[in-house]
Amino acid sequence: MDLQASICGIKLKNPLVLASGVLGLNKNNLLIAQRGGAGALTIKSITLEKRSGHDTPNVAFFEAGVLNAFGYCNMGLSAALEEFADLSCFSVPIFGSCTASNARDFAKLVSAFDKLDFAAIELPVSCPHTPSYGLLAGQSNVEKVRAIIKACRKETKKPIFLKINAGLPNFVEIALAAEKAGADAITCSNTLGPGMVIDINTAKPVLSFKVGGVSGPAIRPMVVRAIYELYEHLKIPIIGLGGVSQGEHVIEMLMAGASAVGIATGILQRGPCVFRKCCEELSRWMKEHGYGSIEELIGFAHQ
């Protein structure tokens, strides 16, 4: 079965994308996900300066998913420009990801990323657990998002993906403003919350940062609903992301209106080959149900 997909003119051998934040610290990390069968790979977000992030524990678990608060630990822009200068070891498109506290710094990062061979650049404005970034920098504000996209649009012709948070009451408004300001796609969603897990033996929050973004099966219905709603309003494509670990979940997101589907926490559940497994399940289901292409599934739930 041909699982070819496309996002902003970028051809993907399958619609599954390694989401930013997992196995994306460097090229060696990304190669693990490429071996697992991903159709595209997103690097972990880069900031202007190197960051060591929050102390451990950075992850906390509950029965329906994971909370994480890594706090944008990353090598910083100058090291990233070296690390990702040569992307010839990859056979699938690589998406850059960078984040900052304000529009000016976002633009600096995008301007630097523009010179690399990234197929697109994703801008998260939606992290729920890092002071001075994302939601903790007030980037749930429509004006701020507009300013960020406008500033970045001037720096690159590459497709710009805006990564939003489906937990915000104004997520449609944010996506519409981004579309109008020149964003090429919306990635929905970042982790939701933040939430908290308390260890009852020690009576302490598990995460060192106390709160963290919620991911995994628990958030999938919220994300599916958000994608469904975005699809009704947007002209630009959507990358669905949140709680996907099986082929059926991919189909659900495509039907809601996603053109490509990200996987992060699913790697914990089924290993890096979660991409290949999802593709097999997707293929089988499409064959059994008489679908000939990914295209036919996109937005099918809106009929």
Binding site: V22, L25, V59, T265, I267, G271
Partner: peptide, 16 residues
């Protein structure tokens, strides 16, 4: 950092 194969910090080449 995570011990469950998602964060990538313990990578040795492209092995975790």
């Amino acid at each position: 950092k995570c011990a469950v194969g998602i964060c990538g910090h313990c990578a040795l080449g492209s092995k975790l």
